[in-house]
């Protein structure tokens, strides 16, 4: 359901969308069923002359409850268990596992700009050839990246909707995670945690490039201000 609105740009995007699709099916079923019963009851038992409400004493209520409330209740319990299993598997896949990264990129959020530190030619971070850019992240499609996320001042949230990636950046903490781009293109990076007056004006651009384009970019990194409004 989500891919209709937002492309699946990373390896685990399809798993998150699958979980959302499963929950969507279940919740829509229950929602329509219960609303249907509600409106049917309203129509069926509307006040009509000569029609009197029935009185269910405790015994009758109990029988009715066992038949009509307990069964759907158990089915909901099953649905919940399915949702929990789905949620935990997807969460473990995305947040708990950390596959060996081909490259590490450092993301530092600050009041109203993103600073990306790419590993540069040698593929190693904290070496002389690192490329530091502002509000512009260049990655190669198909490569597994691990990111080190930090913040300078307040809470921010590193969010790439197309990757289904979101992780809050907390000042004083370094939070790691991973993503593996699967489609080429130019996408949005948003801040998902309110960080003051400029929260709405700190967009960054994500460039997922083919291996050749990426190598070309590393050779002579474009002037990172190309995008700024």
């Amino acid at each position: 359901m989500l891919e209709h609105y937002m492309q699946q740009g990373s390896s685990f995007a399809s798993q998150i969308d699958g979980l959302v699709w499963m929950i969507f099916l279940m919740t829509t079923f229950w929602f329509l069923l219960v609303e249907g019963i509600l409106f049917w009851l309203l129509w069926r038992f509307r006040a009509r002359p000569g029609h009197k409400a029935v009185y269910l004493d405790d015994h009758a209520e109990h029988a009715f409850e066992v038949k009509w409330i307990e069964i759907p209740h158990r089915v909901i319990l099953l649905c919940d268990v399915a949702v929990i299993i789905g949620a935990i598997t997807v969460w473990s896949e995305v947040k708990l596992s950390a596959p060996a990264p081909d490259e590490v990129v450092r993301v530092v959020a600050q009041q109203w700009a993103w600073t990306f530190t790419h590993a540069g030619r040698d593929g190693k971070l904290d070496t002389a050839d690192d490329i530091v850019t502002i509000d512009e992240l260049h990655v190669q499609v198909g490569k597994t990246y691990s990111y080190e996320l930090g913040a300078k001042d307040v809470l921010h949230s590193f969010s790439i909707p197309v990757f289904r990636l979101k992780q809050d950046a907390i000042p004083g903490r370094v939070i790691t995670g991973w993503f593996k781009p699967t489609i080429v293109g130019e996408f949005d990076v948003q801040c998902a945690e309110i960080c003051g007056i400029g929260h709405g004006i700190m967009p960054a651009r994500l460039y997922v490039e083919t291996p050749e384009a990426h190598a070309a970019w590393i050779a002579n990194p474009t002037h990172y201000l190309a995008y700024k409004f």
Binding site: R106, V107, V108, Q110, W112, A113, T115, G120, D126, A128, D129, D130, I131, V132, I134, E148, L149, G150, A151, K152, A169, P171, G172, V174, P221, H223, Y224, L225, K228
Partner: peptide, 24 residues
């Protein structure tokens, strides 16, 4: 801070984002 940041990292037009971050 890894002072030897590559030369091209000129100060961006809007508020300067110094190279070193408390993050690393």
């Amino acid at each position: 801070a890894h002072e030897a940041a590559p030369a091209h990292q000129a100060a961006p037009a809007h508020e300067a984002a110094p190279a070193h971050g408390a993050g690393e």
